[in-house]
């Protein structure tokens, strides 16, 4: 299998209020982005707990994208701020245990940032493609 023919499967956890709407806008505005992502819509990035990300990885995801509202924009005021602390530590812990840095990604995309969403997805997909299939577990 050559590097380029590998199509990674990326699970994207998007918050309902900003990032999911951002993805919607990307579609409506016809920004192109790779079809490698499978979107899971969650109420808020604060809803996402590490076991969910592990489940995705264990069941065959090659990469993960988590996206919420920009700090200060959370529909629930502070959900993404709690999430930010959680993910800062979680990402470091994963990398500490040897999961490659590009595997699990966190970002902010607002409802008006269709283009940013397309950029994020394209670049994350490309990075995960470079890493190859996830076979740590």
């Amino acid at each position: 299998m050559t590097e380029n023919s590998f199509e990674p499967k990326i699970i994207a956890f998007l918050c309902n209020w900003c990032s999911y709407a951002g993805a919607d806008l990307a579609g409506v505005s016809r920004f192109q982005y790779p079809s490698n992502i499978r979107i899971v819509r969650v109420p808020c990035s604060g809803r996402i707990s590490p076991p969910m990300l592990f489940s995705a990885l264990k069941q065959g995801a090659d990469g993960i994208l988590v996206s919420g509202c920009h700090p200060g924009d959370c529909h629930y005021i502070s959900g993404n701020l709690f999430a930010r602390r959680r993910f800062a530590l979680f990402k470091n812990l994963l990398e500490f245990a040897g999961i490659e840095p590009g595997r699990v990604n966190f970002t902010w995309v607002s409802a008006s940032e269709g283009e940013r969403f397309a950029d994020v997805v394209s670049q994350v997909t490309e990075a995960v493609r470079q890493l190859g299939p996830f076979n740590r577990f």
Binding site: K58, Q59, G60, G132, P133, N135, F137
Partner: peptide
């Protein structure tokens, strides 16, 4: 248990 069977998996 569901077993994932894609390439590269242990």
């Amino acid at each position: 248990e569901a077993i994932r069977k894609d390439k590269g998996s242990s």
